[in-house]
């Protein structure tokens, strides 16, 4: 193992389920290694069964398969896995659209995912463009242990690989777990229905992660288009995320300067503080009383 047990993250992270591999990648090689919370894992496939174990032979780890991914939990594995009823709709396609390693805290990545203010600058010509940079007021709702960000709509030049052109796109972000977030986005062909884009962050270490993106989409002609579009978008975020300092997400409200457009990020940070998350973060500075 790479680290001492003292470096174990909080239970809210440790005992959760995390994506550690795409099934298609595993099928290709039969066995592969992956890293979760600095622990090296060995993933093997025998007949139809997938096994995940510590690479140093110190034991088997709870694992399961869902939505094209191998999920693992270093804890007891008794947490519920995230579930999306939309995945069962007959006209919907469930597509793993790519995994990209990013040298930053997974928490920074989630905050980036729920931030629309960067679209005109980082995803220019796709998710936004100048001069349409204004972020309309949006609402934040914390319910059932989740953060919901319900935005108005924003003008997007090319919202997806299938988008016919510029469109007003409605956005709802839902943070389910510290490392799992979903975007409900207006389908450009069926305005009453939504496409789902899921980001599942695999925490490799406090300052390294892998972005796994899953699409639950209604119409597509070629999976390659969706994959290359999402790869482009994540690829545009990667150099930004890798050049933020510090790499760990500062949770003290005074360490970075949010504006109203950052209400989603601010709510996410506060939600992490309430859950006692410190792995991959810089915890808030508290007044400490020394006794004796």
């Amino acid at each position: 193992m790479l680290v001492e047990a003292a470096d174990r993250p909080e239970s809210v992270l440790w005992d959760d389920w995390h994506v550690v591999a795409e099934i298609t990648t595993l099928e290709q090689f039969g066995r592969m290694t992956s890293t979760l919370f600095e622990r090296e894992l060995l993933i093997t496939r025998e007949d139809k069964a997938v096994h995940v174990a510590y690479a140093d032979g110190s034991g088997r780890i709870a694992s399961t398969l869902k939505y094209g991914y191998v999920w693992a939990s270093l804890g007891a594995g008794d947490r519920e896995l995230v579930d999306f009823p939309e995945a069962a709709e007959t006209d919907r396609h469930v597509l793993t659209v790519g995994s990209l390693g990013i040298r930053t805290s997974g928490l920074r990545l989630v905050e980036n995912f729920i931030d629309v203010a960067h679209f005109p600058f980082v995803h220019t010509g796709y998710l936004g463009a100048e001069p349409d940079t204004e972020v309309q007021p949006y609402t934040i709702r914390v319910s059932a242990d989740e953060v919901w960000v319900e935005s108005g709509s924003c003008t997007q030049p090319m919202a997806s690989a299938a988008a016919p052109g510029a469109a007003q796109i409605g956005y709802v972000f839902r943070v389910l777990r510290p490392y799992t977030v979903v975007l409900y986005k207006t389908n450009t062909h069926a305005p009453t229905r939504q496409d789902l884009l899921l980001l599942m962050v695999q925490p490799v270490s406090q300052e390294r992660c892998i972005a796994h993106v899953l699409a639950l989409v209604l119409n597509f002609e070629d999976a390659r288009d969706i994959r290359s579009f999402q790869r482009l978008i994540t690829g545009q975020d990667k150099p930004i995320l890798e050049n933020q300092r510090p790499s760990r997400l500062p949770l003290d409200p005074r360490s970075e300067l949010p504006v109203r457009a950052d209400a989603a990020g601010t709510a996410y940070r506060r939600w992490l503080v309430e859950r006692g998350v410190s792995y991959g973060a810089i915890p808030p500075i508290r007044a400490v009383a020394f006794v004796g």
């Binding site: 203010a117 005109p120 204004e134 972020v135």
Partner: peptide
């Protein structure tokens, strides 16, 4: 700034424009 387009003035380093709130004065 490459991330959100905030503009900082030569000399003072003060922020003069936040694109997310184009009609407001930066704090």
């Amino acid at each position: 700034c490459r991330y959100h387009g905030w503009r900082f003035d030569s000399g003072t380093g003060a922020c003069s424009f936040i694109p997310a709130h184009p009609r407001q004065i930066a704090p």
